[in-house]
Amino acid sequence: MDISSIRLFDIQESREVSLSEYRGKPCIITFWASWCPDSQRDLVRKHQLYQQMDKSELGFITINVVGREGNKLDGIKYMEQNQFQFPVLLDEGTKIYDLFECKGVPTTIILDEELVVRETFGERATFIEIMNGLAKVI
């Protein structure tokens, strides 16, 4: 799957972002929905990671699965309420979620520097398992 051509709207930067911008360094992508307690817990941990990580060495993206929200603005409201600062891209319904063959939220994808999927973690994965998967590509 060539994901470098994927373009989604980043609500933090108010611009369209291409995943090709992340080529050259490993990247972590998290798919989430605001109503999901597992997503809520995961995003808190991911925010802590984002605040401490070296952004020149690791790409970091979250994708709100708009097609799994009750209202397409729910994810945006959730981000604002929690003051998360990491990149938040809006899926086109479930288009990108489906492209990555996600089965639930949250789902975390680890990409290598060539944007090739190296690990996929479903909603039952622990944060430690995700970090161990990330360690394999950095």
Rank of each mutant, 00 (worst) to 15 (best):
M1R: 13
I3T: 13
S5D: 12
R7M: 07
L8Q: 07
L8G: 00
I11E: 04
R15F: 02
E16G: 01
V17C: 05
L19V: 03
E21P: 04
E21Q: 15
R23M: 06
G24Y: 05
K25I: 12
K25E: 06
P26L: 11
C27F: 05
I29Y: 08
F31T: 08
W32D: 01
W35N: 05
W35F: 10
P37T: 09
D38I: 12
D38G: 03
R41H: 12
R41Q: 13
D42M: 14
V44T: 04
V44W: 02
R45H: 11
H47Q: 15
Q48P: 00
L49Q: 04
Q51K: 14
D54G: 01
K55M: 06
S56W: 11
G59S: 11
G59P: 13
G59Q: 12
F60N: 08
I61S: 09
I63Q: 06
V66C: 04
V66A: 00
G67H: 14
G67Y: 14
R68V: 00
R68I: 02
R68T: 01
E69L: 01
N71P: 03
K72G: 00
L73I: 07
I76H: 06
I76F: 08
I76T: 12
Y78L: 01
E80Y: 10
N82V: 01
N82S: 01
N82A: 00
F84L: 02
P87W: 10
P87H: 11
D91Q: 08
D91F: 05
K95S: 14
I96V: 15
D98S: 14
F100G: 00
C102V: 07
K103V: 04
G104W: 13
P106R: 03
P106Q: 04
P106N: 02
T107G: 10
T107R: 13
I109F: 09
I109N: 08
I109G: 04
L111C: 06
D112T: 09
V117Q: 05
V117G: 00
E119S: 08
F121V: 02
G122C: 03
E123K: 13
R124Y: 10
R124S: 06
T126I: 09
T126S: 15
F127E: 12
F127G: 00
N132Y: 07
G133T: 06
L134C: 03
A135N: 15
K136A: 01
V137L: 10
I138C: 05
